[in-house]
Design a protein around this nucleic acid. Structure first.
Lengths: 276, 276
DNA sequence: AGAAAAATGGAATAAAAATTCCATAGTATG
DNA sequence: CATACTATGGAATTTTTATTCCATTTTTCT
């Protein structure tokens, strides 16, 4: 039970948690992890609820509290209840509070991006063509290999797509332009290219998509306007209109679309292979 | 006991409170007044505490709860606890349901990700610690060089940050692990590291942050729990809780936070150089 | 591989909290 | 001013929740 001084603030609590969670046995670490992720529930839950959430016995959770320096759960909860501050004025009020902090303060900016992201997401549902999305999923689900390309602003989207495909064991390569290599010859028959680009469109992306198209490969495009330069590649065009804040955009809608696309492809593949 | 329908939301509760508090006898009105003034403590207090606060007997407080339409104090408290930790939908089971009903169409998935993104964004407005955010902006604004690190799921965020910094002519390098090089020696005095990582935390990211911290450099962390492993690096911790959909998350909130951070740093730098 | 130590699960117990009940005080009504 | 009705305080009871204890399993060290 290390030392006996119980944390008296959230700061101290977090600090101690980080400090000792490494050296804990399995069950107690589960507690630590759950608590780290759900700190806000401690004040309003019972040991039974929390231990169930962490997947351990109440007694284990009890020991965890003691390791943290408290005499028991009650004392730990007391700390959280005392520092409990209401944070539930609704979203609109919170946003106003953020904005009210001064025009170009970080929090005001954050509020702008949050709001822009929310608007973009709301638009997404209405701007994406669902039929095209389904076609894109079909095409990608049966591709032997998926090539993902996107630079600059689109690169985060491209890399997240690759990450998702990798996690689902779907063959995909990210054309990231490292070393200025141009591995276009990796594109083989049947492969599908996902090209992501926004105005001002990056030439490399367009080139790669065009190259693939000329070879007879299918192209799925994620872009901001259906009439952009990807048009020429006969791509399955998924158009996202993202709301800008100044010169930047939050990418919320684009990333959401991308991940939904990836997961759909994963689900479809599962279905196809089950069917066999 | 007017009607028997218990309020299920804060609005309903307040409405009813205003409605009936006029016609209450003395002690019960005391309860009403105290509750109106200390609504936020209901979730974390006992009848004994609340009744003492209102200056009445526990049994009186009990009767007050019943007048409000609840069967007792416990039910009333339950409402407040649930409202506080507004339960995030459990997307894992929701997705299973979708799959069970055969409706795991791309559009259904997209809708889930959009919804998850929206929730995450709304939450962001209340979970980010504004003070820390401002400190992080200050620190970054005066850094001669910013090192951005984040792998796997966090890599899109890291790359978007780098992109934003580059666009604003701010010196920043992305530690992307290409070639398994470990350019930690690029970190010089005064440089600041932005480390982005989510559970399960990637060791490389933590290592780099720890290395920088040992050298006496400041670290800004974007992570999912304030008590994660980054704690040890004394980092300025920006915690984002993102809603998962199955095994994936839409990253909407994280990206929004990141871009707001970047743009704020840019604005701050402009201000600093104008002042000279 | 075997002994010692640590960790775990689950039931038993203790503590705390909610809820009910009732005797008494207060108030309105005829 | 008596009577019926309502409100109140406080103790008794029930329910819920926290905590401890110990037999069993797992890990560690020799």
């Amino acid at each position: 039970m290390s030392d006996q001084t119980a944390p008296v603030s959230l700061e101290e609590f977090n600090h101690r948690l980080a400090e000792i969670s490494e050296t804990m046995p399995k069950r107690l670490r589960q507690c630590a992890e759950y608590v780290a992720q759900n700190t806000d529930r401690i004040a309003v839950s019972t040991v039974a609820e929390l231990s169930a959430g962490a997947g351990v016995q109440p007694s284990a959770f009890m020991r965890f509290c003691q390791l943290m320096g408290f005499t028991g759960f009650s004392e730990m909860q007391k700390m959280f209840r005392e520092t409990y501050a209401q944070k539930w004025p609704d979203y609109t009020t919170r946003l106003e509070n953020l904005r009210a902090t001064g025009d170009d303060s970080p929090s005001a900016l954050l509020a702008e991006f949050v709001e822009a992201g929310r608007l973009s997401l709301e638009n997404l549902a209405s701007t994406v063509d669902l039929e095209t999305l389904e076609k894109a999923v079909d095409v990608l689900a049966s591709a032997p290999m998926i090539h993902v390309v996107g630079f600059r602003r689109a690169f985060p989207v491209a890399s997240y797509l690759s990450y998702a495909f990798e996690k689902m064991n779907i063959a995909a390569v990210l054309h990231d332009g490292v070393g200025n290599l141009n591995p276009r010859h990796a594109i083989r028959e049947g492969d599908v290219v996902i090209a992501i680009t926004f105005a001002p469109y990056s030439q490399e992306t367009i080139d790669l998509a065009a190259y693939a198209h000329d070879l007879g490969n299918k192209v799925v495009a994620i872009s901001d306007a259906p009439s952009g330069p990807m048009r020429k590649t006969d791509a399955l065009m998924l158009a996202v209109s993202e709301v800008d804040v100044g010169a930047f955009r939050a990418l919320s809608a684009t990333i959401s679309l991308a991940i939904a696309l990836a997961v759909s492809v994963g689900a479809k593949r599962d279905k196809l292979s089950d069917g066999k």
